[in-house]
């Protein structure tokens, strides 16, 4: 029987969708082992977020209000203390989860299975499958320590649906940590966008080095993105060149996405890019070079110059 604590991820006082993917994994673990799950709402606005998180069937929602910007040093001791009563701690393998949970694991002497794609509970025994080698291998792993720490790949766990009801909430004490005094949070530039989140959009349109400039992203890619109500992504080459912000990078070091439709425009399809999108349901490539490696995963391939084609595609989509 495994009792699970979900570590919520808050952004501006609201739980991010990533939290609900972690809830889904926590439910699988709890149901498969006859245990239960709770949620820890932690950060600025934890109280309000706890109310929002009370409708997902958790035994209770713990809350720890911590003001100011996030650093893992500021949160880890509180999460570890709250986690002492649980067998498994779960968060999403977002930048936040990958930053915070290993620190918590070290405090608890726990092994970490990171970025898992599946939970197994055969005979009540827990193991996890996780993509490795940029998605070219899947390993199944057991955690041998008393406590288990797990981060889950957002694209592999549907966000939990609200189940009604209201889990009771409980305050947990905020713990101090000497390491936290070594880091001063100076600020964050949060990118505001009206578009869907790259992590859970149904359609993603990504551009690559071939776009050649930030202006071309604005004038060629964005109209298609908006005509499809899509999220915008990019290759590392496009992010490195400053055509778009780094958080739009899709791939081994960027975001992993698995939308219903992924359109790769002027992207060659390097192994590290494929790592972030080959789980997409339908993949379209628009590329001048029909030999580009993106063909290995593309369902539809339009061999063409993107500057001629994409505006025409945008117009055609608008007419649908």
């Amino acid at each position: 029987m495994a009792n699970v604590l979900v570590v919520a991820e808050l952004l501006e006082g609201k739980a991010r969708k990533t939290t609900l993917c972690a809830v889904t994994a926590a439910k699988q673990i709890a149901e498969g082992t006859g245990g239960s799950f709770d949620i820890l709402s932690i950060g600025e606005g934890a109280g309000a977020a706890a109310e929002e998180l009370a409708g997902y069937g958790a035994g209770k929602v713990l809350k720890a209000e911590i003001a100011g910007g996030y650093t893992c040093e500021k949160y880890a001791a509180t999460v570890a203390e709250a986690g002492k009563g649980y067998d498994v701690l779960v968060a999403c393998a977002s930048a936040y989860g990958k930053d915070l949970l290993p620190r918590v694991a070290a405090k608890l002497g726990a092994g970490v299975a990171s970025d898992i794609s599946q939970v197994h509970t055969d005979g009540g025994k827990l193991s996890y499958t996780r993509p490795m080698y940029a998605g070219n291998m899947f390993g199944t792993v057991e955690i041998l320590s008393d406590k288990q720490v797990v981060t889950v790949r957002q694209s592999e766990f549907e966000p939990a649906a609200s189940s009604g009801g209201a889990s009771p909430s409980e305050d947990v004490a905020v713990q101090t940590d000497a390491a936290a005094d070594k880091v001063e949070f100076l600020g964050v530039e949060v990118v505001k966008s009206e578009r869907p989140d790259l992590g859970d959009a149904d359609v993603v349109v990504s551009g690559g080095r071939a776009l050649k400039s930030a202006d071309n992203f604005t004038n060629v890619i964005e109209p298609l993105v908006d005509a499809l109500g899509a999220a915008m992504g990019a290759s590392r080459a496009a992010c490195d060149a400053g055509y778009v912000a780094p958080e739009l990078q899709v791939g081994q070091t960027g975001k992993v996405v698995a939308p219903k439709l992924y359109i790769a425009i002027g992207i060659s399809g390097a192994i590290q890019h494929l790592a972030g999108m080959k789980g997409s349901k339908t993949i379209v490539a628009i590329n001048k070079d029909k030999e580009a490696p993106i063909a290995q995963v593309a369902d539809y391939f339009l061999v063409a110059d993107l500057f001629d084609t994409v505006p025409a595609l945008t117009e055609a989509v608008k007419k649908l």
Partner: peptide, 19 residues
């Protein structure tokens, strides 16, 4: 592809980590 060792090291040293 784990993203774990650096942060664990920092915690064991009592040092901050910037990922």
């Amino acid at each position: 592809d784990s993203n774990v060792a650096g942060t664990k090291l920092a915690e064991e040293l009592g040092w901050p980590v910037i990922n």
